[in-house]
Amino acid sequence: MTQSSLHETVRIGLLTGAVAAAGILFDNAYHIQVLVFIGINTILTLGLNLLMGYTGQISLGHAAFYGIGAYTSAILTVHFQFSPWAALFPSLGLAVLVALIVGIPTLKLSGYYLAMGTLGFGMIVFIVFRELDFWTGGSSGLAGIPSLKIGSVDLMSGRNFYYLVWGAVLGTLVVSRRLIESRVGRALRSIHGSEHAAMAIGVNTQAYKLQVFVFSAFLAALAGFLYAHCIGFISPGSFDFMASVRMVTMVVIGGMASIWGALLGASLLTLLPEWLHAFADYEMIVYGLILMLVMIFLPQGLLRGLLDIYERSRNA
């Protein structure tokens, strides 16, 4: 085992400890709820970071996959009496299928075609959620989504769901880490470095771009599934263009190509609206400003940027 992966194992162990400790310490249902949302957003950000941060492919419609995961499971459980766990596989499966259909034509082209394609795709999916009202409830949303159960244990009670979500976060972290530190991860990063050079060393860039796009859609759908069964009610507004922008912001703020940055970015952008209730109407402006400031002053993201500042002050 190399030094860096040893450090990584220690870090993941520490995070596991912190997750367990927070679960015991936090009593307040509201706090637990916020932690659950941080977890769900971390899964989203990790997936999008593999695509954006590591492979350099921008998706502006990732909320669509998040929504497909949420709505598929919600519709199957509410209208077709599926048990939630039985609805998990069709939800993930549909997201993967749709990602293949969207990804195959757009990823053949290099450059910003994926960004443009996913932008349009996200809008179409949002309209489908809103207009297919006999299934989705339209703009007023879909209520009465059953909670998850393991045996007779109802995971709805905040703390149990918290452990489930953060278990999924830790799993996603380990999987992302392993991908990045492998032959596959190097191939993905080579595409980010230079697509021509990646081809010239023998990387099938098209196949790898498709793989990582589908995997990030899979993670978004998993997050959507957890979200739907966590709050029991969903409406199209959670999966609109602004939601996609929020995800991109989480990736950029935490730091592109940084797994721990994804955790930080997701935490900050989940907590920020909670802290700044007064700014709810100006959400777009606040996110825009944050994105601009981070891009200008901390282009490597908050995590790397703060570490650099710390190291400089220590050396000074």
Binding site: V175, R178, L179, S182, R183, V184, G185, I201, V203, Q211
Partner: peptide, 13 residues
Amino acid sequence: QHVRTRCGFWGAI
């Protein structure tokens, strides 16, 4: 060494 190694997506995980 990409073309001389084999580990794929599932193998990496």
